[in-house]
Amino acid sequence: MSAASSQSEFAAALLDPAATLPAGVTTMRGSADAARFDVYRNNVMVSLITALEQKFPVSRKLVGDAFFKQMARGFIRQERPRSPLIFQYGDGFPEFIDDLETTRGVPYLGDVARLEVLWMRAYHAADATPLDIAAIAGTDPEILVGSGIVPMPSASLLRSDWPVGSIWAAHQQDPVASVAHSGPETILVLRPQADVRVHIVPPQDGNFAATLFAGKSLGGAAQAASHDASFDFGSALVGLVSLGTVLRLQPISEGDNS
C-alpha cells in the first residue's frame, strides 16, 4: 500500500522545520529520510535568503550578516514569493523590518531597505525618454501651473526622517564613510537612461516633489511648498526635469489645483 503524495503537503513542510515529512516521500532504502527532504527545505530557504541579500546589500552591511539572515528567515516564513520574478520578492521587507523590536536601535534601517526596493524597481522599470527641459521653457505658464507630471516609469520619491540617501551613499565605498548630518532627506531614485541614479532633493523642494508625485498640479505643488521661504519654483522644476524625473506633463482638473 503506497501513500499518495500531495503538493500541498510537500509545500507546507518546506517552510516549517517542525512539520512531519509529507506522506508518500521515501528513499531507495524503502523508508523516509528527513535529511533528504531537508535538502529541499535548505534549497528554498537559502535561495530566498540569497535573493534578499542581493536585493538589500546596504541593509545587510548595516546590521551584519548574522542579523540580516535572521531577519530574512523571519520574513520568508511570513511571506512567500508570489511570482517567479524573484527580483520582485522582498518589496514588503521594509515594513517587516519596521515592526521588529530588535531593530529599534537602527531606526533608519527600514527606510534604507525602502531605498533598495526603489533601486531594484528602477533597474527593471520600462525604458522611456524623459521630458526635455525645452518643453518646459516652451509651455505657456498658465497651462504649466494647471499641469501635473507623469513621472518616468523608473522614478520614485522616498521621504525619510533619517539621512538614508547619505547613509546609502556612505555604503557604496569601503570602508564605509561617515554621514555628516542626521536630519531628514527626500531621495529621488530613477533611471533616465542606462543606469540607476540616486539623488538627494534639496530640502526646500521636498514638499514640492512629493506633491507632484502624489498627482497634484505644478501650481498646487508650488503652493504646498511655499511656506518655506527658500523654495523657488523655477529652480525646483528645472532641477527635477533636468534630472530626468518627468516623462510628460498632463493637465490636471481645476478641482485639484486649489
Binding site: L62, G64, A66, F67, P163
Partner: peptide, 13 residues
C-alpha cells in the same frame, strides 16, 4: 543575533 554591522560603527552627525 543583534545588529552588528556598520550601524554599530558608522558615524551619523
Amino acid at each position: 543575533a543583534v545588529p552588528a554591522g556598520t550601524c554599530t560603527t558608522m558615524e551619523v552627525d
